[in-house]
Design a protein around this nucleic acid. Structure first.
Length: 572
RNA sequence: UGCGGGAUGGUGUAGCGGUAGCACCCAUGACUCUGGAUCAUGUUGCCUAGGUUCGAAUCCUAGUCCCGCAGCCA
């Protein structure tokens, strides 16, 4: 069924599901889950997982749960829970009534642990963390049995109960699975199932002083929820035998039958060029104030991308295009940028904004006259209509649209040369006024060709360049924040050169322009509104924006052929 | 000298014995009242060595390289 449907991207996990469906595995059910730990904000890498899990469910008439993996209260907070919910929703996915927490199952985990103890498959171990490490052996040498491994069931039961009752200090004892200290897979060398931890949990408060480990809690949570395909990242590959061991040794309907139990499947996490993706590193950037919070528009977090102006559609499209596989890779950030451009090209209204203004006086245009000229809101989408923009004798154009001594391929304004002002007139540069001291260009005096008015009968005359502009008397002041990559190198994670990832931070990742001027139609622009500033890029109104000063974030620039020409000529 | 994974253009991803495809990037041209968009064209690839086969990215053998694993984190 999916074979003929191009809307369903095929990847090796979909292939597994297709096969399972064919064999009526799990009774034809497909049930996935997105299981974040609420210990930080979600990033674009999580978006890949969210799109995968929810997308697979959607594509196969299945369900996807949102489940918080909150088994370690020392790192987790409600703030993160709330942000994660908001981010998943914003991305466009709906868990309906299936919002779960691993902490919902604390009682059950405890019962299953008791069950394991009774079956002689788990024991309380008094070794210190240090000793446990030593007994574990190394990658090449087997471990050795803990002296507590042979405790009786009764003793283990008693001790575990007292662990729960709070009789022992933090870290003094753990519950361990009794598997095989000589296993070549370290995860099977009697892994810890429960530890003593006196930390207030964000949901269960001080009800518990013992908490289950991921390896114990996760397979049980999956089984309890009837998850069929438990998708996680590559580093858990080695944990799969333990995942299966837990399911093999507990008594849950969904875990009993090997044919209908959750199956763990691993895929490669997303890496993006010029950024970092680990929560630890992102937190470091936030806490040490290299950026202004988790939602700093330079961050690869969902909240950062949202504030920057990325659309959920663009992010979903991106996640679909990058594919799903088992090989580690680094996706070019240019693909993400392409996805927003493509989305916004269709839907963002065009508007004129001058970032670095250069004053232009049109000497032969009547003083005091104002013409309201009609212009397209989006030439890609005529249904978005037109609007009127004011034109008058004094206008501003972009500083970089004028050069006193232009190189060959420069099509814009220069002394004696003409350009078309978008949706207005052709003007000619007659005179350059400079500061006598500094030589800085202060303003231009131009003349316009009254016959050349856009849309007019004689407007057909061609000139090479077209510039955007704003009327001086009508323009609104704005601040514009231009962003560049947060890091200067493609792979800041690579610490092979001995440098900390922060050494690669781009000192110019944020440039604030405060003297910008935008057309008056933007007066009512609301935070979150996105526009294409003609010839420059896509911009989004920032929440910092006020009635007095509009604040825009540059989402992404337009592709810039001229910039490329300049670059190659400089380097060539 | 352990175990588990993975190697397809610059990047990402298909291909499951029958002409190596798609997307991004890059380049060239057309068009353009956005040097945008659009359209057309193009460069670049199966880790290595053997083998099986009429035919191998795909199957077999032997290597090489890369990633992960020794938390009471997830």
């Amino acid at each position: 069924m999916t074979d003929n449907n191009p809307a369903v991207p095929v990847n090796f996990i979909q292939n597994i599901i297709t096969e399972d469906l064919k064999n009526n595995k799990n009774g034809g059910r497909v049930h996935t889950r997105f299981p974040p730990e609420p210990n930080g904000y979600l990033h674009i890498g999580h978006a890949k997982s969210i799109c995968l899990n929810f997308g697979l469910a959607l594509a196969n008439a299945g369900l996807c749960n949102l489940r918080f993996d909150d088994t370690n209260p020392s790192k987790e907070e409600v703030e993160y829970v709330e942000s994660i919910k908001a981010d998943v929703r914003w991305l466009g996915f709906d868990w309906e009534d299936r919002l779960f927490y691993a902490s919902d199952y604390f009682d059950k985990f405890y019962e299953y642990a008791v069950e394991l103890i009774k079956a002689g498959k788990a024991y309380v171990c008094d070794l210190s963390p240090q000793e446990i490490r030593e007994y574990r052996g190394t990658l090449t040498e087997p471990g050795k049995d803990s002296p507590y491994r042979t405790r009786t069931v009764e003793e283990n039961l008693d001790l575990f109960e007292r662990m729960r009752a709070g009789e022992f200090p933090d870290g003094s004892r753990v519950l361990r699975a009794k598997i095989d200290m000589a296993s070549p897979n370290l995860n099977l060398r009697d892994p810890v199932l429960y530890r003593i931890l006196r930390t207030t949990h964000h949901r269960t408060g001080d009800q518990w002083c013992i908490y289950p480990m991921y390896d114990f809690a996760h397979p049980i949570s999956d089984a309890l929820e009837g998850i069929t395909h438990s998708i996680c990242t590559l580093e858990f590959e080695d944990h799969r035998p333990l995942y299966d061991w837990v399911l093999d040794n507990i008594n849950i309907d969904y875990a009993k039958d090997v044919k209908s139990r959750p199956q763990q499947i691993e895929f490669a996490r997303l890496n993006l060029s010029y950024t970092v993706m680990s929560k630890r590193k992102l937190r470091e950037l936030v806490e040490q104030q290299y950026v202004n919070g988790w939602d700093d528009p330079r961050m690869p977090t969902i909240s950062g991308l949202r504030r920057r102006g990325y659309t959920p559609e663009a992010i979903r499209d991106f996640c679909e295009r990058i594919g799903v596989a088992k090989r580690n890779s680094v996706v070019d950030i240019a693909l993400l940028e392409h996805c927003v451009r493509e989305d916004l090209n269709q839907r963002a209204p065009r508007v004129m904004a001058v970032l670095r203004p250069l004053r232009v006086i049109i000497d032969n245009y009547p003083e005091g006259q104002v013409e309201w000229l009609e212009t397209d809101n989006n030439p890609e989408n005529p249904s978005m209509g037109t609007r009127k923009i004011p034109f008058s004798r004094v206008i501003y154009i972009e500083q970089e649209d004028f050069m006193e001594n232009p190189p060959k391929k420069f099509f814009r304004l220069a002394p004696g040369r003409e350009i078309r002002l978008k949706s207005a007139y052709i003007i000619k540069c007659e005179r350059v006024v400079k500061d006598e001291q500094t030589g800085k260009i202060l303003e231009l005096h131009c003349t316009y060709d009254p016959e050349s008015k856009s849309g007019g009968v004689n407007s057909g005359r061609k000139v090479k360049g077209t510039s955007h502009w704003v009327s001086a008397a009508h323009a609104l002041k704005a601040e514009v924040r231009l962003y560049d990559q947060l890091f200067q190198v493609e792979n800041p994670d690579n610490e092979a050169d001995g440098a900390d990832f922060k050494a690669h931070l781009n000192p110019n990742s944020l440039e604030r322009l405060t003297g910008c001027l935008v057309e008056p139609s933007l007066a009512d622009a609301q935070p979150g509104n996105r526009y294409q500033f003609l010839r420059q890029g896509y911009f989004c109104v920032d929440p910092d924006s006020t009635k007095e000063t509009l604040v825009f974030n540059r989402i992404v620039s337009l592709r810039d052929t001229w910039a490329k020409i300049q670059k190659t000529e400089k380097s060539g």
